[in-house]
Design a protein around this nucleic acid. Structure first.
Lengths: 227, 227
DNA sequence: ACTCGCATACTTGTATGCTAGTCGCCTAGG
DNA sequence: CCTAGGCGACTAGCATACAAGTATGCGAGT
């Protein structure tokens, strides 16, 4: 699924609604469990119900909406099993991406890792969570770029989207972020030295860290969960 | 993405059209590049254009249709880069599934592997390609079941769907099938003995075998490809 | 007081007609 | 004969209207 559509693809109304609602969901402006109706959204965006329906269907496919025919459509609650599934798939992909990255490693392609890591440390120092989040994503994207497996990272992102909106609830402390930066440094080091086994372990540890976050959020906001 | 919808989910007309067209595409009754129009399908199924639109959108999401606004909608051609991407993702998932299966191995859970393998050999003996194909899929599914990672296999299936329709064009010979059965035996053996490294290698070899098939089909049916 | 049943106000699914954009043929001009 | 332009016949996107199913609240009956 390369999504290499070279179509400039004019932006349709359905796209507009999709982007808008998507943004509201992942930013938690629309809370899990909130009911939204096609007509309501249609009026807000000044379009008819049809484009809204299309947007809703896409969001349903992304597991962000739950459409209950003849009843209501609501923002999907978090699902611990669903999150675990998404994390598992993400892990499987990132492990293989990392192996490919080691095989395809070159100092030129790898340039920028250090700059990214320094920027991460800087963001942590400033306590800028938004910047750190962006740099975190960029770090993982860079690995995929080195491996020339961008398409696989797209799927990682898709899975991550399901988990990311939950992390908005987590006010990550500086200590937690520093820990993640250390993970990144270790991963980067393993990639550079070609230590496949070490990279494997480091990635597994790194991606397992959100488990605690999820558990904590589940304790604090049980209403946002369906299981 | 657990897809554990406990909704019985009444079958809507859009579902009907989706299933029908999906089947026609993967069975190559609708050839790659064939143009199909909403109205045409709508008339054939005796429904209006709206459900057809919805079904088309879903198929577009599965990379099976290519919707060109105001021009036409056609069955997507094969894409070698797309197939490579799908195979890569499948490989990443199956590798991790196999590792989980080794960790979760138990003789009870693993029961049936031998029966499946024998049935595969039998199907090959009879030259029954359809049966072999089903058993092949069941074999891989069984690994996921042992690992209790069915959800990940669902994604494998989704990726496989993109590739499977191309294989309808390949009249696999008995020798080729026997080779695959041998692969399966080797994989099964590694799982049983807990040989993670061997399993990894066997899976990589196994999944790499379709490359030749793809190349051959690309030579024989270049019109079905977009690259 | 409690329960059952129905009317009503929702919801999503479907049908139909209209709009706008694209391709191709056909004709007029060189 | 060849080329350029326009007209018509498509397409998908959208808007509107209607159908069908579900939750809810009120009221009558027990």
């Amino acid at each position: 699924m390369p999504a290499l559509d070279l179509t400039p693809k004019r932006r349709t109304n359905a796209d507009l609604v999709f982007d808008g609602v998507y943004g509201q969901i992942v930013s938690l402006q629309l809370l899990p469990g909130a009911k939204i109706s096609e007509t309501e959204i249609a009026e807000r965006y000044g379009v008819s119900r049809q484009p809204v329906r299309e947007a809703f269907n896409r969001l349903d496919g992304l597991q962000l909406l739950q459409i209950q025919p003849q009843r209501a459509t609501q923002v999907r609650r978090f699902s611990r099993s669903g999150i675990a599934a998404a994390r598992y798939i993400r892990l499987a992909l990132e492990l293989e991406i990392a192996r490919s990255a080691i095989a395809a490693w070159s100092e030129e392609a790898a340039a920028g890792f250090d700059a990214n890591l320094d920027a991460q440390a800087d963001a942590v120092g400033r306590g800028d969570r938004a910047a750190f989040h962006a740099l975190d994503e960029a770090f993982h994207a860079r690995i995929a770029d080195v491996a020339d497996k961008r398409f696989a990272f797209e799927m990682v992102l898709q899975k991550k989207a399901q988990v990311d909106r939950i992390c908005v609830l987590s006010l990550k402390d500086a200590a937690g972020m520093r820990c993640l930066v250390e993970d990144h440094r270790r991963i980067s080091g393993c990639l550079r030295s070609g230590d496949a086994a070490g990279c494997d372990a480091a990635l597994r540890l790194h991606l397992s860290r959100i488990e605690d976050t999820i558990a904590r959020i589940h304790r604090d906001y049980p209403d946002y969960f369906e299981d």
